[in-house]
Amino acid sequence: MPLQQSSHVVSAPFIKPQQTISAVMRQVIYAMVPGMAVAFYFFGWGVISNLIIACASALAWESLALFLRKRPIKNYLADGSAVVTAILLGLALPPMAPWWLLLVGTFFAIVVAKQLYGGLGYNALNPAMAGYAVLLISFPREMSAWVAPVTLPMADIGFIQTLHWVFLHQLPGAITFDALTSATPLDYMRTEIGRGVSFNEVRLSATVGVIAGKGIEWINLAILLGGIWLWYKKLITWHIPAMVLTSIAVLSGAFYLYAPERFADPVFHCFSGATMLCAFFIATDPVTASTTPMGKIIYGLGVGCLIYIIRTWGGYPDAVAFAVLLMNFTAPLLDQYTVPRIYGAGQRKG
């Protein structure tokens, strides 16, 4: 239990703390607004239904767990960390995901990965990614059913129809869900290159936009902007995002130069899938990442390399969840071995 200052003996400093956890989390949420907005633009109401159900169920699970653990529910709900987890998960799951998928995902994220380990600040694994990984392994069909960004505006599925699908598994008229979905750009790229199609041809296909996956490239760009704002506000440091992006760019660049027809180019990798979300919002989760400057650099490099390796040679199209979870395990070790040089250490006398 945290140590409390007694009212009789108090010690300095007598200046109010400049930040609170809820303010930090609130700002993280603000920074994700552009990404959410662009995702809504391209993927429609399915994004909103994801976010609403994820937030509601995450808060419900958090309250339940806090109640069972006999912790002050109001204090901990107000910290906003559950909402951040829910938003990350909501954005990472395919839009229009069925309600139970989100419920199961947030259960694993909030109850298993976070609260069972001691709640805020004590979880070893990134809750959103732990939830995502469980879903990816358990429900591969639902997890790969991404609606194509172009079809929805044409099909004009409104909010109510979306909710109908999400809760009742019904779509209006003759539309079938399969007609709405398509392989994600990363998935498409993998299977096509696996079939021997060159990356140049992949790039010309309908799933690829200007620089990377259609629609997804703009979401990544919006998230990048939000992330830069977060860095500008000093809520994250440059180390992890820069290292994640650098390692992905360098690795993919090297292989792209080696065999441009078999490997995707760096820009494609950086602006596809959840790369930006990972670099600025997932890998930078302070609780589960390394905290020393050098540790953050190694951590970021590790995440980036793992993302590229799993995307290129692994069994899953996007690799953010596994890369982040694997590096989460290394964080305590990194912290221990990357203690920075303190003031006056190793100084020659005279």
Partner: peptide, 24 residues
């Protein structure tokens, strides 16, 4: 003399970035 309602550490590292002795 105000009781402090502190939350768990989230390891954000703000403290380390302002430490003039560069401690953690």
């Amino acid at each position: 003399r105000q009781p402090v309602a502190s939350m768990p550490c989230i390891r954000c590292g703000q403290c380390a970035s302002v430490c003039p002795m560069k401690l953690l």
